[in-house]
């Protein structure tokens, strides 16, 4: 059973003495099997007077990320909670008034259902690989000692979890890619990356939602918009949300152009 300690000035319950956070690792992606129950956070901190941080094992792992989203769903409706920000292995809960002892007690005592399940939105995202939209595809093939087709097939060959949004509005960190696709970031980031660029770095992949600087290696381009800036409600601003699933599909030039001109809408949350 996980040991929960309270940080934030004082430790309430004795935890492991001289706790040292483990160095983050992505190599042990499959080291934790998904359990039928929701993992409890390893630590719960006060993050200033108005927020609390729940933290699980500091690894990039779908089972850990499942727990983050289970807690997010459970806590988002709490009174006085204004935001729940999920990340790989942590969740920040922001209140509109100072966090009270009773809030901490409720967090510690929160019981999650044994068989937690939630709606999982799967996004099928078309990608035109290589060419002008994927200027780094050849470099990636050379770095990984694969052919371009093998790179594309590996990239399309699995589902990706949106572990978290960050970097810029609607930018989803998707993972994890096949270990054979692991490539370093560009040594000099591009000053401007086209919106819709599909890129990889390390063991992750992403779609740049809008023009921005970027250091990931661009292998293709998705014709569908990732942001809807004309929405009345900001909650529907981003196509992707943390916890969603993404499947990439290879398309040809003709299909790409058609989808660019007739983009599919996304599900209103």
């Amino acid at each position: 059973m996980d040991v929960i300690t309270r940080y934030g000035g004082r430790i309430y319950r004795p935890g492991p003495k001289n706790f040292t956070p483990p160095a983050p690792s992505v190599s042990n992606y499959y080291s934790f099997t998904t359990k039928p129950h929701v993992r409890k956070p390893r630590r719960i901190f006060r993050y200033g007077p108005l927020a609390v941080l729940l933290e699980w094992e500091t690894i990039i792992d779908p089972a850990v990320n499942d727990a983050v989203h289970a807690y997010r769903e459970a806590l988002a409706g709490w009174p006085h909670v204004t935001d729940c920000v999920p990340a790989y292995a942590s969740l920040m809960v922001v209140f509109d008034r100072p966090v009270r002892e009773v809030d901490m007690d409720r967090l510690f005592e929160l019981q999650m259902p044994d068989n937690w399940n939630t709606e999982n939105i799967i996004h099928h995202l078309p990608v035109l690989y290589g060419g002008e939209g994927g200027p780094d595809l050849e470099d990636v093939a050379a770095l990984t000692k694969l052919t371009k087709d093998e790179v594309i097939n590996l990239h399309c060959g699995r589902d990706y979890r949106v572990f978290q949004l960050g970097f810029s509005p609607g930018f989803g960190f998707l993972g994890v890619t096949d270990h054979r696709l692991a490539v370093p970031r560009l040594s000099t980031p591009r000053a401007s990356v086209t919106a819709g660029s599909v890129a990889i770095a390390g063991n992750q992949t992403a779609i740049y939602p809008r023009v921005s600087p970027g250091g990931w290696r661009i292998v293709g381009r998705c014709p569908l918009p990732m942001l809807n800036e004309n929405v009345a409600h900001l909650g529907n601003l981003s196509r992707l949300a943390a916890g969603d699933t993404v499947r990439f599909t290879r398309v040809n030039d003709r299909k790409f152009t058609h989808l660019l001109q007739n983009p599919a809408a996304w599900k209103i949350r």
């Binding site: 956070p21 983050p24 993050y47 200033g48 927020a51 941080l53 933290e55 500091t58 690894i59 990039i60 920000v85 999920p86 990340a87 790989y88 292995a89 942590s90 969740l91 920040m92 922001v94 978290q164 949004l165 960050g166 970097f167 960190f173």
Partner: peptide
């Protein structure tokens, strides 16, 4: 550390020294 949420007012310790995050800082 792997990236984790931050708030404006957070003091991060970077190799170049401490930074206080402002209202337009990233969210993680």
């Amino acid at each position: 550390m792997i990236s984790s949420p931050v708030l404006p007012g957070t003091v991060q310790l970077t190799p170049a020294g401490p930074i206080i995050l402002g209202p337009d800082a990233h969210t993680v």
